[in-house]
């Protein structure tokens, strides 16, 4: 893993590259925050700079995208997060890139064209959390039925399930066959 100082250096480099590419320094150069927790480096970036950040990291050696997964940070805003886990196979380094978007505007640019592994994984995040990936070739529900309403893994979606039949509530609950 890049250690804490290495992480800060990476963040600095990203900010510089972001400004150099003319995307302006209005949003802190794309990198909002760095976090170093339990020997693991993480960068929090703005949604708009996701693709550029990942490409820059690919240039630095993180050529393997291990995972793309979503998180619901309810009740903290912005609620929906997307995490990209990158891996550098030659030096066995991992780094996480995090993005957070609010539920009201859950758009994140898709990285499927540059990182083909993100295809099904972004579809799963769309299915489970409702994050819309702009530019994804085929954004449909992947795990739930196609006509399902709602995004199940959001924290305010109920877990659901059947009531468990115990002796004390069996007479009051309708049996399946009735």
């Amino acid at each position: 893993m890049p250690d804490a100082t290495g992480l800060e250096l990476i963040a600095q480099e990203l900010r510089r590259a972001h400004e150099a590419a003319g995307r302006g320094s209005g949003d802190a150069g794309g990198v909002l925050d760095t976090a170093y927790f339990r020997d693991k480096a993480a960068l929090l970036v703005t949604p708009a700079s996701v693709q550029a950040t990942l490409e820059h990291l690919r240039g630095m050696g993180y050529r393997f995208m291990a995972s793309v997964h979503g998180v619901d940070y309810f009740p903290e805003e912005p609620r929906l997060g997307v995490h990209y886990e990158l891996l550098d196979m030659s030096t066995v380094d991992r780094i996480t890139v995090k993005v957070r978007v609010p539920v009201a505007d859950p758009h994140v640019p898709s990285v499927t064209n540059e990182w083909p592994t993100a295809d099904h994984q972004e579809r799963e995040i769309y299915d489970m959390f409702g994050v819309i990936f702009d530019g994804h070739p085929d954004l449909r529900r992947i795990l739930m039925p196609e006509d399902y309403e709602g995004h199940p893994q959001r924290r305010d979606f109920p877990v659901g399930g059947e009531p468990v039949f115990f002796t004390h509530n069996e007479p009051r609950l309708p049996r399946y066959t009735q």
């Binding site: 995972s67 886990e85 592994t117």
Partner: peptide
């Protein structure tokens, strides 16, 4: 891989398993 987000309580706030078959199927 297992991704866990803990929020200080006794239940995990998010558990995600990065399953190899899911990615290999692509």
């Amino acid at each position: 891989a297992c991704f866990i987000r803990a929020d200080g309580s006794s239940k995990p706030a998010r558990v995600h398993m990065r399953d190899p078959s899911f990615v290999n199927l692509q």
